[in-house]
Amino acid sequence: MRQVILIIGGNVGDRMALLSEAKSKLMFKIGQLKDKSAVYETQAWGGKSKGDYLNQILIFETDFEAEYILDIALKVEKELGRERDVKWGNRTMDIDILYFGEEIINKPNLIVPHPYISERRFVLVPLEEVLPDFVHPKFHLTNKELLRKCTDSCNVIKVQ
């Protein structure tokens, strides 16, 4: 069994219902949900979307490979109305693989650990909540240390 850490989130539609539906679909398709963060409301990151996001970290145990998890994530996004027309644009659901155990994966369609973890408070705040001492396999810093060093100034507010 491997541990896969995902972040799910969106800023369009009934955001809380979409988070719940995404979590249910992922539980059915990839493995046992071991832990989750609170839900956080965050400002849009990247400059192209309008409206605040709800985000949540999910930690699963799975027997599947990372590429399969990515395929499932993309299918769930699409099932929940995701349209990929603008990079960092509005979305009903976004699902990213943050970590896949301690593996480093560098393929054309998948980079793990996620390349922007250290730059995004909306990722690091909930990661620090559930995995403060997990060591980033490339940076050799814990999630807690990455959050302390992060220069992103976006508000990240716990809502549930």
Rank of each mutant, 00 (worst) to 15 (best):
I8D: 03
L98W: 07
N106S: 14
A44T: 06
I5T: 15
K23D: 01
F134C: 06
G31Q: 04
T92C: 09
N143L: 07
L98V: 09
W88R: 14
C154K: 04
E102I: 03
I59D: 03
F122H: 05
F139R: 15
E102S: 14
R91H: 11
N106C: 07
Y99R: 08
N109A: 10
V76C: 02
D133E: 15
E67V: 07
N11V: 03
E21A: 07
H136P: 02
L110K: 13
Q160R: 15
L26D: 09
H114Y: 13
K78C: 03
G101N: 08
L147P: 02
E61Q: 15
L110H: 13
L146P: 12
V130R: 11
K48I: 00
S153I: 14
V156N: 06
I7V: 15
P113K: 06
E67P: 00
E128R: 15
G46M: 10
K23H: 02
T62Q: 01
V125G: 07
T42R: 04
K149L: 15
V123C: 05
L58H: 05
M1L: 10
G89C: 09
K107A: 02
M27S: 15
L147F: 04
T62L: 04
V123M: 15
N143T: 06
V39A: 07
E129N: 08
A73C: 15
V76Y: 01
F122S: 06
M1F: 05
K158V: 13
T151K: 15
N90H: 08
P137G: 12
T92Y: 02
E103C: 03
T92M: 04
K34E: 14
K50L: 12
P113R: 02
E79P: 00
M93Y: 01
L58M: 06
L80I: 04
I111H: 11
N11K: 01
I57Y: 04
G89V: 06
I57C: 12
Y99L: 15
R91W: 04
Q160I: 10
G51I: 11
G31R: 03
A17H: 11
N11I: 07
P126R: 13
V135A: 08
P137W: 14
E65I: 06
T151R: 14
E128H: 12
R2G: 02
I105R: 07
T142F: 11
I117N: 05
I111Y: 02
L80A: 01
A17R: 14
G47F: 07
Y68S: 01
